[in-house]
């Protein structure tokens, strides 16, 4: 199913949330805004900055309120204070593609059974340059890292679909149990965010851990 059709059908079936974004069909178009601004939106002087260009989504979603770069768009630190008023489903999908890159297509494929998931080992083994060393991380180190980097406690709202390798699932934890829907909404009301391959931030953290493991195993050199 195409990402746009998936979005259309989801909205028709009562879905109104993806990540931290509330999506509303208004009859004449669509509104997107931060779910935490829900109480403001319908007030006449809501004070939100109004945008009509879906491309603005990239600017809104690059940095968090305190100016830190959002290393994955799955982070739950999306800025508030804006509303997008869009004319078409295509523009809505384009904006969502900036807010949550490929998210609609990934979930559509997951539901169709065509999503190919990439294990952590596959991801690490494909790294080049300075990140090549990341592949040396131990299984235990990687399991630990998932619990230190992923999941809502660490500001990532994605549902981890990958295993360490084909035979090794993630240890049970809050991070591995999380199903991609922040804000306690039921599955019938939100499109989950999925993590089909570890993000580059996770890879960078793997490199740090594998360096530390290497240093610990080779004291003095």
């Amino acid at each position: 199913m195409s990402p746009t059709t998936f979005l259309e059908q989801s909205l028709a079936n009562g879905i109104h949330r993806i990540g931290q974004i509330e999506v509303r069909a208004t009859g004449s178009g669509f509104q997107l805004f931060h779910a935490d601004d829900l109480a403001l939106v319908d007030q006449p002087d809501h004070g939100l900055t109004v945008h009509h260009d879906p491309e603005v989504a990239r600017d809104i979603s690059t940095y968090s309120e305190d100016g830190t770069y959002r290393f994955t768009k799955g982070q739950t630190n999306l800025k508030r204070g804006w509303i997008m008023i869009l004319d078409s489903i295509d523009d809505t999908r384009r904006a969502l593609d900036h807010f949550y890159p490929a998210a609609l297509g990934l979930v559509a494929a997951q539901r169709d059974g065509t999503l190919q998931i990439e294990t952590l080992r596959e991801k690490l083994n494909r790294q080049t340059g300075m990140y090549r060393f990341a592949r040396n991380i131990s299984d235990a180190g990687a399991q630990q890292l998932v619990q230190e980097v992923c999941g809502p406690a660490h500001q990532c709202a994605k549902w981890i679909l990958w295993k360490l390798d084909a035979e090794t699932p993630l240890d049970d934890s809050e991070a591995s149990r999380f199903r991609g829907i922040p804000g306690n909404l039921p599955e019938s009301e939100a499109i989950p965010l999925v993590c089909r391959e570890a993000c580059n931030h996770f890879v960078a953290e793997c490199r740090k851990v594998s360096k530390a493991e290497h240093a610990a195993a080779n004291p003095g050199g």
Binding site: S2, P3, K73, D97, P101, A102, G105, L106, R196, C199
Partner: peptide
Amino acid sequence: VHCCFWKEEPSMREAWYLTD
């Protein structure tokens, strides 16, 4: 029209899912 990256989202591996 879509973009994909080596070191940013969406990744190249995710590009297949960006469009039908």
